[in-house]
Amino acid sequence: MKALTFTLVGEPPERLDLSGLTPERLAGKGRRDIENIRIGMSRRGSLVGDMFRVAGSDTSSIVFEGGSERFDRLAEGMQDGSIRVVGGAGAQAGRAMHGGALTIEGDAGPHAGSCMRGGRIEIHGNAGDHLGAPLAGELAGMNGGVAIVRGKAGAFAADRMRRGLIAVLKGAGDHAGSRMIAGTLAVAGGTGEMPGYLMRRGSILLDRAPKKLSPSFVECGAPDSVFAAVIDRYLVGEKILKHPLLGRSPRRYGGDNAVLGLGEILFPA
């Protein structure tokens, strides 16, 4: 069977809610049924058939030929299978994913991977603000899985992250890892203001010393770290990074002591 392919016929005239186009929600549906799914978020109410040319039938493998920053809620709640976007995506891509793989070959908007619990998101371009973070009113952000951003991430990446791994390869904005509950955020390419601001637990792994750190972090020296060796080998082995991030004895700062203080920021000594 060929992958179920949605070929974008033109720039969408409204924001699109693509949360209904996941492998489990499309399973068993025929092409006509799929084309009649409403995805437009304004009164215009565009249908799938208005925006895409639909081909293929393998709902476990979905391809969007062409992307748009108006593609919202892409792969939301996905459990299994794969979705690939040949282009960019809008807000909340991969939100609350439980499994499967989402690949975005362009940029993603804000709240990518928000509250995801499992699976793997790979964004070849940049990600907007609040990568993996909760929406307003939610208590915790990313709760499992892996999110990889090969470009830059905006501000508040991994905000209130609880579990899982986020890797950003070309730098993150201000307050990366703010209010982290646990989990691991790896950033190559530098971070903005105050990484780890009000983090309770969790690990922020950097490839260089942070430019400005909250004074409520304390230096803990640079003892040999087996964890650093293991995560370095994992990141390189999974082809997330080309080179080790930390080395054998990274410098460690503990914090944020303005809150629980059990988190850490590690970077090469």
């Binding site: 499992g144 691991t184 690990s203």
Partner: peptide, 8 residues
Amino acid sequence: WQISKKFG
């Protein structure tokens, strides 16, 4: 002071 880590 122990730290839990889950990855891979």
